[in-house]
């Protein structure tokens, strides 16, 4: 198993921490992981992305130029990473703040209205966990139980009372993610 994933959005959306939780979850499953962030000096408001690689084998490069899965949470991220999804790969986007259609026909496209959902849940901070839930539904690369362990590991203890709320958000994300387009590549099936 080798999953090369990029998560990209505005700084402050929880892009880097979502990647971190995913990486920690991988460690809990005894997988090899790498987490490599890229962001400018302005974290909140600027565009940030993180490359997370989860693998059964030692990881060669933490930097790749094509991804199995791209999670894009704002328009600049879609513009940057759409063309870098492997044919037959997966693109997940949040409808909020994306104002054009995905052009590629050879990738699976999923939409998750995580921002709207987090507003409904009256807690926009769990936005990234809703997205993570969506990812795990599409590509169950780690068990939920290990995600919760990873979350516990990566959150300072004073925030541990938030764990149930985060779990709820992940579960909600699993429910609301929807397939928008199946890749027009023979032999590659979308997960549902």
């Amino acid at each position: 198993m080798l999953q090369e994933i990029v998560i990209s959005g505005f700084g402050g959306q929880g892009v880097l921490s979502m990647g971190k939780i995913l990486a920690y979850s991988g460690i809990m499953e005894n997988k090899e992981v790498s987490w490599f962030p890229a962001y400018g000096p302005e974290q909140r408001g600027g565009t940030a992305n993180v490359t997370v690689i989860i693998s059964d084998q030692p990881i060669s490069s933490p930097v790749v130029n094509q991804y199995d899965i791209a999670i894009v949470l704002n328009q600049p991220s879609l513009d940057k990473f759409e063309e870098r999804v492997k044919p037959g790969g997966v693109l997940i986007y949040d409808g909020y703040g994306i104002h054009r259609k995905v052009q590629r026909k050879d990738i699976h496209v999923y939409r998750i209205n995580a921002m709207d959902e987090s507003i409904k849940m009256d807690n926009t901070k769990v936005f990234n966990m809703i997205v993570l839930g969506g990812l795990l539904r599409i590509s169950p690369m780690v068990e939920l139980e290990n995600v919760m362990k990873g979350l516990k590991e990566s959150l300072p203890e004073r925030h541990h009372k938030m764990l149930p709320m985060n779990e709820q958000a992940i579960l909600r994300g699993m429910e609301i993610v929807e397939l928008e387009q199946e890749a027009a590549v023979p032999g590659v099936e979308a997960h549902s």
């Binding site: 971190k20 990486a23 460690i27 090899e32 992981v33 790498s34 987490w35 962030p37």
Partner: peptide
């Protein structure tokens, strides 16, 4: 900056 900022086991 890559090796300093990246996370691994």
């Amino acid at each position: 900056g890559v090796i300093g900022q990246m996370m691994e086991k």
